[in-house]
Design a protein around this nucleic acid. Sequence first.
RNA 1: UGCUCCGUGGUGUAACUGGCAACACGUCUGACUCUGGAUCAGAAGAGUUCAGGUUCGAGCCCUGACGGAGCAACCA
Length: 565
Amino acid sequence: MDDDNITVNEEGRSSVSFIEQIIIDDLKAGKNGGRIHTRFPPEPNGYLHIGHAKAICLDFGMALKYGGKCNLRFDDTNPVKEDVEYVDSIKEDIHWLGFDWEEREFYASDYFGKLFEYAVDLIKRGLAYVDDQSAEKISEQKGTPVKAGQDSPYKNRTVEENLDLFYRMNEGEFDEGAKVLRAKIDMSSPNMHMRDPIIYRILKKSHHRTGSKWNVYPMYDFAHGESDYYEGITHSLCTLEFEVHRPLYDWLVEHLKTDDYRPRQIEFNRLNLTYTVMSKRKLLELVQEGRVSGWDDPRMPTLCGLRRRGYTPESVKKFVDMIGYTKVEAINDVTLLEHAVRDDLNVKAPRVFGVLKPLKVVITNYPEDMVEDLEVINNPEDESMGSRKVHFCKDVYIERDDFMEDPPNKFFRLAPGREVRLKGAYIVKCDSFRKNDNGEIEEIYCTYDSETRSGGGSNRKVKGTLHWVSARHAADAEIRLYDRLFKHEDPAGEKDTDFREFLNPDSLEVLKGCKIEPWLAEARPLEKFQFQRMGYFCVDYDSTPAKPVFNRTVSLKDPWAKINK
RNA sequence: UGCUCCGUGGUGUAACUGGCAACACGUCUGACUCUGGAUCAGAAGAGUUCAGGUUCGAGCCCUGACGGAGCAACCA
């Protein structure tokens, strides 16, 4: 059991989500044999995003915590939308998060045979019928939420006729849309889903797993509860929009079950993040329209995008744990996600020097040919990460933003006549600078105080400490900075405006000619570092030793940025 | 104008069978600092959508409003 993430109040009682409480109560009551068995049921029609991570953490997390199991089940009942391409990415992402379904990799399509039999059984029991009407007609008869529906003229066909028709539907005798199988429930139910829902439709499409074997495919509603039942699922956790499906889920399970065991569907709130969209359809559009570079664009809320951005699985799980599971439709602040990565990377990421926008500094009183190897600590949060050597010489680069010709009072960095410490090296003083023809500052001239070498026992204090890198040794790098993809907190929430209108044109800034410690060019994709004072960065897939590329995962908290506003 | 679900600081959550509304993020102070990071100390910020009712006592129970979301795909 993992108790780390349980909030404990003053009386020492742990507070758990309403779902966990239900599980605890069910276990205590010995329901379904006192076992817990969950499932994560993605449709293989897109890449997983952080909203799925919330579901994964719950499905796998609860099973793990209470000694149960969690199945991976691909909900592949619609061959026109699904593809194997997605199956592999989904498995990879779940593993990345650190969860495992062992040998229990299932597909709803595994049950097409059983499901067909159950449909036949319902027909025989007079609980399902074949309807010949068009989609439009059926929809029309369905009524509206405020108006009862009316029975189909085909509702009272004989069992024999229904059976014959259903078999022939599957044999391919009828065109798509010509006939459907419907459960015979109640056309006047206040719940639209109970108005004789369609449970099978004709689809003459090849399925990514069953090929051309079937001409009829079950609808989601008809497959889900039964699949849960077949697999022995005890707690079927899903998002809030399925709440109104529950009576149908229960109806189908009730008519299927032959024993006391019964899976229970429980709904929780979906994850929404500020400044992004979360629906698969919208994410797909961003990809297809080239608004992002792909599903794994580091600005995407997909798990592969977050991974490429430099997020760790631990940070995603921590975030999910912080936001909780309720029935309230909430919009979670991205800053909480960002806090979660910073918190995780603060402990894990080695500190290095990287200058994003370099400005040359010449230390005029430093010997021309001298090079010192200065020892710097890798991570003040973790001594075991040791130290490394960095080269120091007469020419260094500092951050362009760390110098101001005419600075305000609260600016603690370099300016004419002011002193700063070059971290791990010496205190330097700016004596003068040179501008180019465009009036831009081109080079700064400093003198250093040789008594102030780091670790040398000097107790001179200066207000500011800058990161830097030796101009003679640095490697060049490309650094990609990311901002929120949308300018609007809830881009999909504005009814009259297309979400694309809110795209942030400046969400990607590519910096070239950045200067990094030379050895960093060899770092492998996804390796993570803190570029001191600048943020957390990770090596991009595009990176090569000859042309290193880094992504900024998230900046460091920056009080100066606020003062400067 | 139907059914279902939901309304607690800015945001997300907590508050056992009713008992002084708690935590995290964010914000603001201050300390410390060779990262304006981290860390530490502290502060502000809600009286729980509203109105009634039950009760010694209601965020929790009851009634009624109001507000929001979902549901009318041969999608999941």
